[in-house]
Each structure stands twice: as C-alpha cells, then as structure tokens.
Amino acid sequence: MNVPLTHLLTLAGGLFFIGIWCAVTRRNLIMVMLGIEIMLNAAALAFVGASLRWQQMEGQAVALFVLAIAAAEVSVGLALIICIYRRYRTLDPAKVQ
C-alpha cells in the first residue's frame, strides 16, 4: 500500500479532532459520549496504521484492547446517562447540575 503513514495520521488526527469537537460542543450527553468514541476510534486507526508502518502487531493489539475498553465505557457510560436522565429528565449537560 503506497500511502505514507503521514496521511493516515492526518486522517486519524482529523477524526480525533472531530471527536473532540463533538464532545465539546454538542449539548447532549449522548453526543459527548459519541464524540469520545470517535476519538477512541481515531486512536485505534492510528495504532493500526503505525503497526503496519513498523511491521509489528503491537499496534493491532492495542487497537483490540481499545475496542474492549470502548465496550466497557459504553456500558458504564450509558448506564450512568440513564440514571441521570431518570433524575433530571434531560441530557443537556448544562441542566445536569
């Protein structure tokens, strides 16, 4: 594959930034979580790309663990969000005080 790592990193960086953007600006807890998921995905992408660059499997292994952790994160996070929603009847972080 004749793509330099730089381009892949640029893609990952872009995704990462979109993730941050989403987490930071969208006034919705679910969107915040989604943004962070995007960030994780971007990191995983970078890892896999770097893994190819260095011809190792370490990066892929990290990506695997990232997926597992993302799963755990979603389960705990969504459970929390439900709790919060039950109490405040809203997902706007500004109103969850």
Binding site: A44, A46, F47, G49, I81
Partner: peptide, 28 residues
C-alpha cells in the same frame, strides 16, 4: 453519587482518549 460519577467518568474517558491518541502517535 451519580452526578460526581458522571463528571469523573466523562473527564476520565476524555483524557484517556487523549492519552490513547498520544500513545498512538508515540508508537507511530
């Protein structure tokens, strides 16, 4: 409890995502 946990959680995963990306760059 849930209030605090939510904040802790959000900031926690946010920073862990940042850290992860940093690790990715380091590895790259």
């Amino acid at each position: 409890g849930t209030q605090a946990a939510l904040r802790y959680f959000l900031i926690g995963i946010f920073s862990s995502a940042i850290m992860l990306f940093g690790l990715a760059l380091l590895y790259a």
